[in-house]
Design a protein around this nucleic acid. Structure first.
Lengths: 339, 339
DNA sequence: TTGAAAGCGCTAACAG
DNA sequence: CTGTTAGCGCTTTCAA
């Protein structure tokens, strides 16, 4: 078990000072080509790797950023962020930053954060989905840079990566219309009011442009989980007045909807079509597979890291909005034009 | 923007030396109760948090461990490890360790690892699922502790958390039998030969004990993805000789199977029952929801971290085997006894 | 172009 | 019980 080499060892071996080695390591100028080569070759020969921890101490930076989840968020919701996380990971390693995972919690209006964040043991934070005001306050007070990805809030001073959900909704509904649907329901919830508003307004816009009426009994914004889905659908089935298609705020809702429709012996898409937004990994695994509007999750993650890096380096960091209008055509929408 | 307080500041404020403050911080003895209190109260008053990076340098440890994924592994597979990852996260924070994420890659027999691992910038590694021999060699050479969770290999010298898949398979098939099934197919693949062997042997054992024959045409071990599933099932349908139930090696396969059966207008579980192993989050979201044997993923993650911490601290670290025989009864298995 | 030396914040012998 | 001091490995200023 050989003890690790340090910069002094390299200096000795190359017959230079530690400073020179350091310059070479960091590609700084002020070193003659000859010595640089000599130093490099020593480094190469002994396979020397500088110790991050020393560097961290010197720079007073940790070279790591954290994704921080809401402890309360169901695993299910995290699922949606799976692809984004992969993209975060990639982008971090591009910057030679480590990506760590943490959770925060809001109890009785009190934010609790892991020690390593309070410590400032991370250079910055990334949140997925809107965060509570209390958290914003706390972070501002801590003076630690952060960005919120997939944020829906109107908070002006936040650094965010937003998705144009209005466009996504509009795209989805317009697709239904193009397939001959005239009776289109809306299913969602108001957990994130701003999200709801955007999506609903995209839905409305598409209907309006096609001169289609908005039928209130087909719009239900209280769908959260299995029970609420079942309640709504079973009630709707009693009225015997069904839309030909449902637009859902997000894939998870659509998947639950399809599940229950099937349970009620309704065929998707033969009896009723379903479309939504997200394109989570699940969407392609159920039957019928879900037609949906894909969000560029790769881009969301990438942008979040880019913004955060800019903040860390005190550069300009304009917010970004991801526009999404790519329909992933699968099996859950019927083409009524073919009839 | 006040500059951060250091241990010297605290020492000054409390009228003691840095050493004393350090002792207090680390709950070491050799400090009178009076001074300890005084120091603590100063720390509290100014809300002092020691800097991890200094500590890291002193200890020559990073206080972080990494989960390392195979870059080639489809996101789908990662899905299975979602719950485990959450559990890793929890357990790490219990130990006050940070959890970072990395990827490794095997190209042309060459292992490539992120700089921060080669650096020894992590105290240890956790892998989910079997890792290539090349990687084992590389890690041994690097002399960095690691544990493989959900390992199936026979590698004697590895530190692992294994799952008793034979028991799980046995449990699943036995459940089918208890529900009156006599004609039970097996669906799997040999991507991980040891995994296949274990599961298949559990399947066999259950059949044997019930004096049920093993019908080769119902056993198919080449199912990987959508195409192979479709190929097998469509061929089987032509023979008109179907089992009443299928046992699948893992949920993902079962979900794909159900998807295709439905596509072929076969009803699950009315026409054919399906059971498997894993209980991934998806299993409850499809229709019909999947009856499966749950693995204690919480425990898997926890044990992996525990073992790794032991290794890091040079303590004994016995491998652990998670036994799993808990059936999660949902909708995909029909009770033939009721007929 | 290079080297010496101080410093980053904490730990841990050692001495008192 | 407490303080002094020498590191930990790297960066960076200043002088040569």
């Amino acid at each position: 078990m050989k003890t690790n080499l340090t910069i002094s060892d390299i200096a000795k071996l190359a017959n230079v000072s530690k400073a020179t080695v350091s310059f070479v390591l960091n590609n700084k100028e002020g070193v003659s080509e000859k010595t640089r080569q000599r130093v490099l070759s020593v480094i190469e020969q002994v396979d020397y790797k500088p110790t991050m921890n020393s560097r961290r101490l010197s720079y007073q930076k940790s070279f790591t950023i954290a994704v921080v989840f809401d402890k309360m968020t169901a695993a299910l919701n995290n699922l949606f962020y799976f692809d984004i996380m992969n993209s975060l990971l990639k982008r971090c390693s591009f910057y030679n930053y480590a990506l760590v995972h943490y959770e925060f919690e809001l109890v009785d209006g009190q934010i609790s954060l892991p020690e390593n964040i309070l410590n400032k043991d991370v250079d910055g934070l990334i949140f997925l989905k809107d965060i509570p005001l209390e958290l914003i306050a706390k972070l501002t007070q801590l003076d630690i840079p952060f960005v919120v990805a997939d944020d829906h809030s109107e908070h002006r001073s936040l650094h965010t990566v937003k998705v144009d959900y209005r466009l996504a909704a509009y795209t989805a509904v317009q697709y239904l219309i193009s397939k001959g649907h005239r009776h289109i329901g809306f299913i969602g919830n108001m957990n994130l009011p701003a999200f709801y508003t955007q999506v609903f307004s995209g839905y409305q816009k598409a209907l309006r442009e096609a001169n289609l009426p908005l039928e209130p009994s087909w719009c239900y914004e209280k769908i959260q989980d299995r029970p609420s889905t079942e309640k709504y659908i079973s009630r709707l089935l009693q009225t015997d007045k069904l839309p030909t298609a449902f637009f859902c705020m997000e894939d998870l809702l659509a998947i639950e909807l399809i599940r229950y429709l099937q349970k009620c012996e309704l065929k998707v898409p033969d009896d009723i079509s379903v479309i939504s937004i997200d394109d989570i990994i699940l969407s392609n695994m159920i039957y019928p597979s879900l037609t949906t509007v894909s969000l560029n999750k790769e881009k969301i993650g990438e942008s979040a890291v880019d913004i955060l890096m800019a903040l860390i380096q005190n550069r300009e960091a304009p917010n970004v909005i991801i526009t999404s209008n790519e329909i992933i055509v699968r099996e859950s929408v019927k083409d009524l034009n073919l009839l």
